[in-house]
Simulated assay, not measured.
Amino acid sequence: MSKNKNNGLSRRKFLGSSAALAAASMVPINFAAANPAPKNDNPNSNFGGVHIGAITYSWRTMPGGLENIVKYCKECNISSIELMSGDLETYLGAPESPMMEIFMEIRRQQQAEQEASGEAPQPRRRGRPQLNAEQQARMDKYNEEVRKFRLNVDMKKVESAKKLLDDAGIKPHIVKFSPSQWSDEEIDYAFKVAKALGAKGVSEEISEDAAKKLGPIAEKHGMYAVFHQHMQFADVEGFTYDNFVDISPAVMFNFDSGHYFGSTGKNPCDILRKYHNRIFSIHIKDKTGPETDPPNQNQVWGQGQMPLEEVLLLIKKEKWPIYCDIELEYEVKPWSNAVKEVKTCVNYARQILM
Rank of each mutant, 00 (worst) to 15 (best):
A22R: 07
F31T: 05
A33H: 03
P36H: 00
V50L: 05
I52N: 01
I52E: 08
W59R: 00
M62F: 01
K74S: 14
N77G: 12
M84I: 14
D87A: 10
A94S: 15
I102V: 10
E105T: 13
R107L: 10
Q111G: 02
Q111L: 11
A116F: 01
S117G: 05
S117Y: 01
Q122M: 15
R126T: 10
L131A: 06
A137C: 11
K141G: 02
K141R: 10
E144C: 08
R147G: 09
L151Y: 03
N152P: 01
D154T: 06
M155D: 07
K163E: 13
K163M: 07
H173E: 09
S180N: 13
D184M: 11
Y189D: 09
K192Y: 00
K200F: 09
E204A: 00
E208H: 04
L214W: 02
P216I: 00
H221N: 13
Y224E: 08
H228K: 10
Q232S: 14
F233E: 09
Y241M: 03
D242Y: 06
M252C: 13
D256S: 07
G258V: 06
R273K: 15
R273W: 03
I284C: 11
D286P: 05
K287M: 15
G289Q: 07
P295R: 05
Q299K: 15
M306N: 10
D325R: 02
L328M: 11
W335K: 13
V346H: 01
Q351E: 15
Q351S: 14
